[in-house]
């Protein structure tokens, strides 16, 4: 059984790209959420192995979303993804318990390595 990824990103293109990156791997996109509120509401239902979380989104941002999910599910594995993140953002992601951070554009090998690392 493939490991489940929940993609949280206001850009549907990101979800499409992640699906492509995960072809022929042990991972699959199990759910796509286009905002933080949806991700929080669906986390229980989806029970992903790993969440990829965009940071800048309308409504609550990815950091806040990650924090809420981790408070409710301390074992959640969340990788933050963004095209824009300053040092303090990355520090904050680490502080709240994210398992990694990746800059867009995602590339296959680093992305897969980050997913595997998050599962350790």
């Amino acid at each position: 059984m493939k490991k489940k990824i929940m993609v949280v990103d206001d850009s549907r293109i990101s979800e499409i790209k992640i699906r492509k990156l995960l072809e022929d791997t042990d991972f699959e996109v199990a759910a796509y959420c286009e905002n933080g509120e949806d991700a929080i509401a669906r986390y229980d239902e989806v029970q992903p192995d790993v969440v990829t979380m965009d940071i800048i989104m309308p409504g609550i941002d990815g950091l806040e979303t990650a924090q809420v999910i981790l408070e409710e599910h301390p074992d959640a594995r969340i990788i933050m993804v963004s095209s824009l993140a300053y040092d303090d953002t990355i520090e904050e992601a680490d502080r709240i318990g994210a398992k990694g951070f990746l800059y867009k554009p995602l590339e296959r090998q680093p992305f897969l390595e980050a997913l595997e690392q998050a599962l350790i």
């Binding site: 850009s11 293109i13 095209s83 824009l84 867009k104």
Partner: peptide
Amino acid sequence: DVAKEYLNVLGGHVLIRLF
């Protein structure tokens, strides 16, 4: 949507390099 995502990524990288 792809064009917007391209510029989104480009804009982010511009700001990261500036700051």
